[in-house]
Design a binder for these strands. Structure first.
Lengths: 202, 202
DNA sequence: GTCCATAAGTGCAACAGCTCAACTTTTTGC
DNA sequence: GCAAAAAGTTGAGCTGTTGCACTTATGGAC
């Protein structure tokens, strides 16, 4: 996520000097990585070069990020928070699948409408197979959390199978658009399916 | 896929000596790899060792398979054929989502009911993160083909967005069960959603 | 049957991502 | 102030993967 400086949705508010320094190092690495990737492409930038640019050792780099792909998707936690909030704080009367649909489409449109930095970021992810795959797997990692919230919001028991199913499918849906011209319509149809199906809950 | 010898659903029937030899080499590599993986685990077997066991060079190995994970999922093409057939040759009156549901469940049950070799194979995939991810991404690669068949079978125009959406979600559904006790029920609920939603087609 | 373009296979060196172990430097809580 | 813990460093090394230059076998044209 391109968020080089402060403007953050859910700033973790680092307190001690130690944690502040750690956060700064992490940020320096992520910034250097994103800058280089945007300049020259993901595959043409090596880990050692990123570490150099951020003035740390490769070992340090890997203490902050579990792998090369993760350098691009910094602040994954914020994404999960936004996702859960989209369901919890949906307008009264709106169905859960519809709330998820809107959240997905908002994300997608953030590139086209305005922020060119974010648009470039999306383009980078979309044009790099390794990043596309990672991105997809990343969202799926939030399935359990989303399922829990859906269960709460729909008054079903925690761990309910139908909630788990909906959570998983809703997270998979945005990627149905992969490489299609009519991307937005495909996403819409996917959520149509889920919305109609969900309304039919036993 | 554990299919060491002949018994093959869709044997490509190699003709010339050249192609036969090529197929034999490929099979030798896949066999050696699967054997070693089952014996000692995916991560504890190196590429060089597999190549040695199959008596080829690593270069040759990578001419036959695009990466380490692909060694496990030999004959991916057969899987796609089975998938498409499940939709095309479904019993009259059965909905497309239901046909896909049954296909998914049949696959899942093949491990539990009988063939211990296949059960061990599933266990290997399931317990190795790299293989789980690859497996999931692999199925998704068949989205376009499945979408085409769904369009044909439902009398919609090729390239229809709703068909693409259903195809993608149906392929994602089996993985909703990941790491859950009630795996089969989750898959069932996922297909319930899709079936109900699909019946509501505009 | 001979000959040649082509494809399969080889050996080796190298790169890139990632990890490990031993060690130095802060920083923090007491 | 001081000891313990955490951040960072260094450097070597493993593993998957690729490129390159080369040999061998095959299939088809003549």
């Amino acid at each position: 996520m391109p968020d080089s400086s402060e403007r953050s949705g859910t700033a973790p508010a680092p307190v001690g000097r130690r944690e502040r320094k750690k956060a700064a190092t992490r940020q320096a690495i992520a910034d250097a990585a994103l800058r280089l990737f945007l300049e020259r492409g993901y595959d043409d930038v090596g880990i050692r070069e990123i570490a150099d640019a951020a003035d740390v050792s490769t070992t340090t780099l890997f203490k902050h990020f579990p792998g090369k792909e993760a350098l691009v998707f910094d602040r994954e936690a914020d994404l999960e928070a936004g996702l859960l909030a989209a369901v919890r704080e949906r307008p009264r009367g709106r169905s859960i699948p519809d709330a998820l649909r809107e959240h997905a489409l908002r994300h997608r449109r953030a590139g086209a409408g305005g922020d060119p930095e974010f648009a470039a970021f999306l383009e980078l992810v979309d044009s790099t197979p390794a990043l596309r795959d990672y991105h997809q797997a990343m969202w799926l990692r939030h399935t359990a959390a989303l399922a829990r919230v859906i269960a709460e919001e729909s008054g079903r028991p925690a761990g309910d199978a139908a909630c788990a199913a909906l959570a998983h499918l809703a997270l998979a849906a945005p990627h149905a658009a992969r490489g299609r011209e009519d991307a937005e319509e495909v996403v819409d149809r996917a959520f149509d399916l889920l919305d109609a199906g969900w309304r039919d809950h036993a």
